[in-house]
Amino acid sequence: MPDLPHLLAFIAAGWLLNLTPGPDVLYVVTNSLRSGARAGIVAGLGITTGCFVHIFAAAIGVGTLMATSVGAFTVLKYIGAAYLLYLGVRMLMSRATPPADLDAAAAAVSGERSLKAIFVGGFWTNVLNPKVALFFLAFVPQFIAPGTGNTALAFVLLGVLFNLNAIPVNVGWALAAGWMARRSAVRKGMHWLDRAAGVLFIGFGLKLAFTDAPAAVRVGR
Rank of each mutant, 00 (worst) to 15 (best):
R182H: 12
W192V: 10
A213M: 02
L7H: 05
R195Y: 05
G88H: 04
A154L: 05
L208E: 03
F162T: 00
D212H: 13
A209N: 09
A82F: 08
I79Q: 08
I55S: 06
P99Y: 06
L76Q: 15
G44F: 04
N150C: 07
V171S: 03
M1D: 11
P99N: 04
S35C: 11
T97E: 11
R183C: 06
F162K: 01
D194M: 13
G71Y: 15
V75E: 06
L137R: 06
F135W: 08
F56A: 00
L175G: 02
R187V: 09
L208K: 05
G203F: 07
L8C: 06
S69G: 12
K188F: 09
A58L: 10
Q142P: 05
L16S: 14
H191G: 10
V171W: 09
R195N: 04
L128N: 06
A138L: 13
K131T: 13
L200M: 15
G220L: 15
W192C: 00
Y86V: 14
A37I: 00
I118F: 03
F73V: 09
I41T: 07
N150E: 13
W173Y: 15
G50Q: 03
F204T: 00
F119C: 11
T64K: 15
A133C: 09
P2L: 06
N165A: 13
T74G: 06
I202N: 03
V89C: 07
A209V: 05
A185W: 11
G147Q: 13
M93Q: 13
A185F: 12
R38C: 00
F155L: 01
L153Q: 15
V89N: 05
A108V: 02
L153K: 13
P21C: 12
R195F: 08
F56G: 00
A176F: 15
P23C: 04
A145K: 12
L45P: 00
F201A: 04
I47E: 03
A100C: 02
G121P: 09
V127S: 04
P146I: 09
I47V: 14
L33S: 01
N163V: 11
P21R: 12
L4H: 06
L4W: 13
R187K: 15
G178S: 08
L175T: 10
M180D: 00
V160M: 03
F10K: 04
A166F: 04
R221Y: 11
A152C: 04
W192F: 13
M180W: 12
